[in-house]
Design a protein around this nucleic acid. Structure first.
Lengths: 232, 232
DNA sequence: GTTGTATGAATGAAGG
DNA sequence: CCTTCATTCATACAAC
């Protein structure tokens, strides 16, 4: 492996600007998509459990009532996760039973879930959060060089500690108006509908082990970023 | 910073981590939106499968790991490995926290390491050791159950395979029709020329991935995203 | 450069 | 709440 090298990255102003714009664009698109979704769901709010049905979750009961391997642990849907995260951060670190039930009901709109899942999730979330928190030791003997691999898991993404002066302002405050973005979003959504004729990741999907690589890469392909990365 | 100075920004791993998370958040949001959109527009079609789960976390890492993040998974030095193996064989099946700390300190003399690394190592070591032994005594009379489970005709027991290609394509390829955004995006894409960079992460890419820098904090500070940051 | 494998890391769930 | 286990994901690396 090539690790062990000192990891200090350098970027020019221009490159940074490009990246900044890229992210800002991304952010704007997301926001617009959210708005669009809200509008749509206002009309179609009745699609409850669309994805569960007679799924595999009955495998336990289906078999001969003996202890087979508990297959398929619950995995939160992205939407569920987002909701959970929101709730978690809204301070209510105390999920009472009643609350749990309520949350479960709400989340079941987005996928199969049970109360124990919610309960466990909050438990784990808190524990993990706490644990990750413990990493900042004041006695930082190594002022520089490569940072450890653990710190990035910090729970506190408050990057205020390192602030440079001349840094660009955020586009996030963009006064860009939504009119145009609507067209853009519509285009996006239409493409989504038109389905996928062009995915070529079938070729290497068969393997059992790492079949996900392609997908992820493409998901985040953000070409502009890729370009910048390649230059380094 | 003064004017006229060469503006080269340096970013720490921590900062890059923040950036990475931020982008991952955007990606996930878009992903979710696509999921919702699909569900809405074709609510008679039950697209089973769709799994985000533990992937989100690495989604960005997978795609941009060697570009945005210098963080790679820890790889024990031969020396470290040797020590770890010794300890493991000494029967200390109790890697208490104190012990972990001590071990970490000791091993750090032979290379970069963190407590999490040690912790994970012991966890994995034990689990896999155990598993190896279980493989020796199958005594598995439940062949039918397994066969049933693995039958490909059924809906995916593991809904984690196909991902959001379409989303990707949409976002990556679709020409944005906003006046202002258009300019920005074109600026960006012209530089890159749409290289879909489907890196299977090879040596060529891992060499240095550098990105950097601090203005991202301001750029990326989206209140809504804060609660998601630690998820990534 | 593709495929397979070993293994670090993430996380749902159980036990105490 | 905290610790521990089991399962799975994703990657580093080797083999082809």
């Amino acid at each position: 492996g090539g690790e062990g090298v000192l990891y200090v990255k350098v970027m020019t102003d221009e490159q940074m600007e490009v990246l900044r714009r890229q992210i800002a664009v991304y952010a704007t698109i997301c926001e617009q998509l959210v708005e669009m979704h809200k509008a749509i769901t206002a009309h179609h709010d009745s699609l409850a459990g669309m994805r569960l049905g007679g799924l595999y979750n009955d495998s336990l009961m289906a078999s001969g009532c003996h202890k087979i391997t508990a297959r398929q642990r619950w995995t939160p849907t992205s939407m569920q996760l987002q909701i959970l995260e929101t709730m978690f951060n809204q301070g209510n670190g105390t999920p009472s039973k009643q609350k749990i039930k309520q949350i479960t009901t709400e989340l079941s709109q987005h996928g199969q879930i049970s109360e124990s899942n919610v309960y466990n999730w909050f438990q784990n979330r808190r524990a993990r959060s706490k644990r990750k928190k413990m990493a900042a030791l004041p006695s930082n003997t190594e002022s520089e060089a490569e940072a450890d691999e653990e710190s990035p898991d910090e729970k506190k993404p408050r990057p205020n500690e390192f602030h440079h002066e001349n840094l660009t302002v955020s586009i996030s405050n963009h006064p860009i108006y939504d009119e145009q973005m609507n067209a853009e979003v519509h285009l996006l959504s239409s493409e989504i509908n038109q389905t996928q004729g062009r995915c070529r990741l079938n070729e290497s999907l068969k393997s059992s082990g790492g079949l996900d690589h392609m997908s992820y890469e493409s998901v985040l392909s953000t070409p502009r970023l890729d370009h910048l990365m390649d230059k380094f």
